[in-house]
Computed example of a mutant assay.
Amino acid sequence: MNRIVYNVDFASLERNFLRSGVRMKYIKANNIFPEELLKQIQKYVQGELVYIPKPEGVRKKWGENSGHRVYLDQRNSQIREKFLIGLSIDELAEEFCLSIESIKRIVYSK
Rank of each mutant, 00 (worst) to 15 (best):
W62Q: 12
S102M: 08
E94Q: 11
L98E: 09
A93P: 00
K60E: 15
L84S: 14
V70S: 15
F83T: 02
S77N: 12
S88T: 14
K82W: 07
I79R: 00
S99M: 09
R59W: 10
A93T: 01
R59C: 12
V58H: 14
R69C: 06
G67F: 09
L98P: 02
S102R: 10
E94S: 13
F96Y: 11
L92E: 02
E95H: 04
E95T: 09
K61W: 08
D90P: 00
Q74H: 04
R105N: 14
R105H: 13
N76R: 08
K60Q: 15
R80L: 07
K82H: 09
G86V: 01
E64Y: 08
F96A: 01
N65K: 03
H68V: 03
N65G: 13
R80M: 08
S99C: 07
N65C: 06
R80F: 06
I79H: 00
K82Y: 11
E64F: 05
C97H: 12
N76H: 11
S77I: 14
V70G: 14
Y71R: 07
K61H: 13
N65W: 06
R69P: 02
S66A: 09
S66T: 10
D90Y: 05
A93C: 02
D73V: 03
F96C: 01
W62Y: 13
H68K: 08
Q78I: 07
E64A: 06
G67C: 11
G67I: 04
H68M: 07
S88V: 05
E91L: 07
G63L: 05
W62T: 06
D73F: 02
I85T: 14
Y71Q: 10
L92Y: 03
V70Y: 15
I89E: 04
I100D: 11
F96R: 01
S88G: 11
E94A: 14
G63K: 09
L72S: 09
E101M: 04
K60L: 12
E94W: 07
L84M: 11
L98G: 05
R75M: 09
L92I: 05
F83E: 02
R80W: 04
I103N: 00
Y71N: 10
S66M: 05
E94F: 11
W62F: 08
L92V: 05
G57C: 05
I89C: 04
F83H: 13
E94R: 09
L84T: 07
I100G: 08
F96M: 03
E95G: 02
W62S: 10
Q78F: 05
